[in-house]
Simulated scan of single mutants.
Amino acid sequence: MIGRFQTVTGAQAAAEGMEALRALAEAAWSDDDWRSHDERMPRELVDELVKLKLYDLGRSDVDLYALDHSVTREAETVRVWTEESDVQGFLKVLLHYGAKVEVFSRHAWNENGSERSDASSGSDSGSD
């Protein structure tokens, strides 16, 4: 996933927000069944999301940041790598900070838009 911003400041804010979410997700991660219908998001988690002004993130969006992923920033561009197919938590943050976002599978596509030459072989080596 690539987020392109109009300013370096926007990209930097998004990358910092994602790093804060990583720390929050790791601190709040729970392997209990929080998905039960009668359980709400923990108040502490809601308070932290309010501090970050990320009002539209849900528990599953935050939990995504505890899973294996990487985020890099280079000038006005933020890149997110993950093996997860659920990328909504990353997408919401990039959009919140004003990015134009491109989402693609590195298993099948190169960043320049060309098809990976090894994509037809079923290789999963394309995810960086």
Rank of each mutant, 00 (worst) to 15 (best):
Y97N: 09
D68C: 09
V101R: 06
R22M: 01
D118A: 11
M1L: 14
H37K: 14
D33L: 08
S105R: 14
G3T: 01
V62Y: 09
W29A: 11
E83A: 09
V103C: 10
G126D: 09
E39V: 04
R40E: 15
A11E: 08
E84P: 03
V93R: 03
A66I: 03
V93A: 04
D61V: 02
S85G: 07
R4W: 00
S123M: 12
Q88P: 00
Y65Q: 01
G10T: 07
A23H: 08
K51I: 07
T77W: 00
V78A: 00
M41Y: 03
R22T: 13
F104V: 09
Q6D: 15
R22P: 00
R106K: 07
N112A: 10
A99C: 01
L57M: 11
D31M: 10
W34A: 07
E26A: 02
V62D: 08
E84C: 08
E76M: 09
A14M: 06
I2P: 00
E115Y: 12
S85N: 10
S114K: 13
D47C: 01
E115H: 07
I2G: 02
R22F: 03
L52N: 05
K53I: 00
H107M: 09
G10S: 13
E102K: 15
L24F: 08
E19H: 11
R106Y: 02
S105E: 13
D31N: 13
R106Q: 15
S123W: 11
L21K: 03
